[in-house]
Computed example of a mutant assay.
Amino acid sequence: MVFFTFASVWCGLASSFDSLLAARAVQGMAGAVYTVAPTVIAEVFFLHERGRAMAIYTAFLAGGPYVGGISGSYIASSLGYQYIFWISTAFAVWSLLMQYLLVPETLFDREQQVLGDSTPLGGEDGITQEKSQISTVERAAGSEVPARYTYIQSLGFGRYRGDWLSHFLAPWLSLRLPGTWVVVLQYGALVGGVVSTATIGPMFLAAPPYLWHSNVGLFNLGGLVGVAIGALFTFLTADYMIKWRAKKEQHGFSEPETRLPVLIPGIFLGTIGLWTFGFCAANPSAHGWAGLVVGSGMHAAGLTMVPSIGFNYLIEAYGALSGDCFTMTSVARSVVGFAWTYFTAEWIMSAGPALPFGIFGMLTTVFGLLALPLYFFGKRSRIATAGFVSERHGF
């Protein structure tokens, strides 16, 4: 967040395209901090609360670009595009302060602080050895073991564990897990659709017969409404499903696959939204803008609903390894978002919008249907790949 703040200032001060491009590269690198958020949610909220918490997170994740799309055109036309980055700086500073003051450090190891032992965890007998040491210290020290630690100590700075190379490779090794592929492909397809509608929609509305000019940013209102509807639906249903299923089981537990049926409405809306957008874009009319806006909103609802469930599945299926899985979803989001902007506009203008958006919708459906084998065989796949998870953490 510190790097993101300084990069935002750099963007606002950039006086050339090369300088702005370099600043944006640093800003994008630092912005990858959002990958940590789902892991924090996993560690702070209980199983039956996690669906609602993740719905709120994905609502902001998906809704942010639409808010920027609505306000950006007005800010740029009245104050200059650099002013957008100063607003971004203000939000970055506020977020940095709130993160420092309000977000708990979920990796703070109180027992390790008691021991004063910097031996890295994760070795073959690391966990067993540490617990034995803690028990010995507590018996020997008795009441002398410190009861409280300062806030600065709880931040845990300087207690990095493991080696850089293994942590760098870990996200790529998570591709050995079927659930990672399913979530990455679904999320990538939906992000590609959003990039396409957000890029092409304003271009169509700025041209005849619409001629919205500087008001083309209002196109994103449909997406913002769709995000709100999708978040509300997921907020109400994601945790309800696992509670309902747990009551049906004699043991009272719920499997991670229980959440997956909630994906179906999101995949449906995402697909139909792209097809609606493509059809209306291919057949412009006096009121055809409504179809563009509604189609974009339907797809935005799917973008909010599907990752909410997918991220929770990764948490519950792979536990501590889910952070590595989230890194891969971020890579997919970035690669798709970057690549789509290069060929989408040219392809749509040359082939017409019907064919490209028809293919985008088909891909959304195909990748969405991968949830079916995961629902029926997900537990077997988790058992088959359990060795990868234990291998990663030394258990």
Rank of each mutant, 00 (worst) to 15 (best):
A170C: 10
A170S: 10
P171C: 12
P171M: 07
P171D: 07
L173Y: 01
L173P: 04
L173Q: 09
L173I: 13
S174I: 09
L175N: 10
L175M: 14
L175D: 08
R176T: 11
R176I: 09
R176F: 01
R176D: 06
P178E: 14
P178C: 07
G179H: 00
T180L: 06
T180F: 02
T180A: 07
W181G: 00
V182M: 03
V182W: 00
V183W: 00
L185W: 12
L185T: 04
Q186T: 00
Q186L: 00
Q186P: 00
Y187S: 00
G188V: 01
G188I: 01
G188Q: 02
A189L: 02
A189K: 01
L190Q: 02
L190G: 02
V191E: 00
V191H: 01
G192I: 05
G192K: 01
G192W: 07
G192D: 01
G193I: 04
V194D: 03
V195C: 04
V195L: 09
S196V: 02
S196N: 09
S196I: 02
T197P: 05
A198V: 09
A198H: 00
A198K: 01
T199A: 13
T199Y: 05
T199E: 08
T199G: 10
I200P: 03
I200L: 11
I200N: 04
G201Q: 02
G201I: 07
M203H: 11
M203A: 12
M203R: 10
M203Y: 08
F204L: 12
F204I: 07
L205R: 02
L205P: 03
A206M: 10
A207Y: 11
A207E: 15
A207N: 15
P208M: 03
P208K: 09
P208C: 04
Y210L: 06
L211E: 15
L211F: 14
L211D: 15
L211G: 12
W212K: 05
W212A: 04
W212C: 04
W212V: 01
W212Q: 08
S214V: 01
N215V: 01
V216S: 13
V216C: 07
V216Q: 13
G217R: 04
G217Q: 09
L218S: 06
N220P: 07
N220T: 05
G222F: 00
G222A: 08
G223L: 04
L224V: 06
L224I: 06
V225C: 13
V225D: 08
V225Y: 05
V225R: 09
G226V: 03
G226L: 05
V227Q: 04
V227L: 12
V227C: 12
A228R: 06
I229F: 14
I229W: 05
I229D: 05
A231K: 06
A231T: 08
A231L: 13
A231N: 13
A231C: 15
L232F: 15
F233L: 13
F233V: 14
F235P: 04
F235N: 13
L236H: 13
L236Y: 15
L236V: 11
T237R: 14
T237M: 13
A238T: 11
A238L: 06
A238M: 11
D239M: 10
D239Y: 05
